[in-house]
Structures are given as C-alpha cells and as structure tokens.
C-alpha cells in the first residue's frame, strides 16, 4: 500500500488554511481528544481547547500564504508529517509575519486527523 502523502499534504493544508482564514471556529473537526497543539509557549490537548485557543487569537482577518510545503510518512502506520513555512497576513497590515508549522496527521478510517500541531513564528516584525 502506498499512500500518496504529498497530495494528501496538499489537500490537507489547502483545506486547513482556507478553513482557518474563513472561519476558524470550524476547525474542531480536524482535531481529536488526544490531539495536541503547541503554540509558542502554550500546549493544549483536545479539540475543544485547541479550537478555543485558535479562536481567541487577537485578530479578525487573517490569511495564510504558503511558501514551502513538504511531507513525509512519519511511520509505517500510515501517518504523515507535513512541514510548512509561509506568511501570515494579519488584518490589513502590509508586512507579513513568517511562520513555520508542522502537522502530524494520523489516519482514521478513510481520512486523517491532526494528532500534533506545532506552530511558531520564525521571526516577527
């Protein structure tokens, strides 16, 4: 069996960031009770807490712009690591912030959920 993890990574990131940028309250479906979010200094577990954290971020409008995307199988069990770098455009500010994010995706039936999500700013303005 060979999972096409690169198209999976593409589909996933496209979906994730579109959802994040349009309505991040709906991201809960992508996380499970055992999911972890590491967001700079904080770490949260469980879909509910994670979404609460993401919703509480201090901006209304946000756009993610991906500059690099790479993916590798993380283990023989079909899980995938997705590595992203990109720009974060917040509200109407012109100067983007750079971020890097790693998703560890786990298979579940015919789809995947986010097992681990590690976000960090590579540098700020």
């Amino acid at each position: 069996m060979s999972v096409d993890f690169s198209s999976l990574a593409q589909q996933f990131t496209e979906f994730y960031y579109n959802q994040f940028d349009s309505d991040r309250t709906q991201l809960g479906n992508l996380y499970r009770e055992q999911s972890m979010l590491t967001f700079e200094t904080t770490q949260l577990q469980g879909a509910k807490d994670i979404v609460e954290k993401l919703v509480s971020l201090p901006f209304q409008k946000v756009a993610h712009r991906i500059t690099t995307l790479d993916a590798q199988p993380a283990s023989p069990n079909g899980d995938v690591l997705v590595m992203i770098t990109g720009d974060l455009l917040i509200d109407e500010e012109q100067n983007p912030q750079r971020f890097s994010q790693v998703f560890h995706l786990m298979p579940e039936g015919s789809s995947y959920y986010v097992y681990n999500d590690i976000f960090r700013l590579n540098y700020s303005a």
């Binding site: 700079e40 201090p58 700013l121």
Partner: peptide
C-alpha cells in the same frame, strides 16, 4: 489596540519547548 495585538501575536515567543 489592534496594532498592539497584531505585533504581540501570537503570544510571547519562546526559545525552547519540551514536552
């Protein structure tokens, strides 16, 4: 206020995080 919140985003940066 908005400006401050943007430039303090996401939260303070941290050098290390270990589980």
């Amino acid at each position: 206020q908005k400006l401050l919140s943007i430039y303090s985003l996401p939260v303070q940066q941290t050098q290390f995080f270990f589980e």
